[in-house]
């Protein structure tokens, strides 16, 4: 299970970095979104103990804290998701403003010379 999650994060992060280095602003925005998904997943699995360990509390049995997922990273990831939403929205506005002002969607505001 761990290897699947790790590979998923790696694919997201790798595609994100590749898109981040592309010259078009929309690619950069999508790249940053993918990267933030990768980071959010990464935070969540920091609090993930092992699979198959359901946090059931049975009557009369003292619960074993080692079987529970850590709730703190889940709280952290909510904050991180909200912040990533807001900054992505802001980036999209700047991207549109740049497109409107310069007439191109190149990140430098002008096409690279051939």
């Amino acid at each position: 299970m761990e290897i699947v999650v790790a590979c998923g994060i790696a694919v997201l992060a790798g595609s994100g970095v590749w898109l981040l280095l592309r010259p078009r602003t929309f690619q950069v925005a999508i790249g940053l979104s993918l990267l933030s998904y990768a980071v959010n997943l990464f935070i969540v699995i920091m609090g993930w103990v092992r699979d198959g360990a359901a946090p059931f509390v049975q009557p009369g049995v003292l619960p074993d804290p080692a079987r529970f997922a850590d709730p703190l990273p889940q709280a952290l990831v909510l904050t991180a998701i909200v912040i990533a939403f807001a900054t992505t929205a802001l980036l999209l506005v700047v991207l549109l403003a740049s497109r409107g002002l310069t007439g191109t969607d190149h990140v430098d505001g002008r096409e690279a010379e051939e």
Binding site: S36, F42, L91, S98, T102
Partner: peptide
């Protein structure tokens, strides 16, 4: 706007690194 676009993208990427480090 062109300078800010670079500024924003670089700092967003840096923030993601910050999150990786914290977690």
């Amino acid at each position: 706007v062109a300078a800010s676009l670079h500024y924003i993208v670089i700092n967003l990427a840096a923030s993601l690194l910050f999150l990786v480090g914290v977690s």
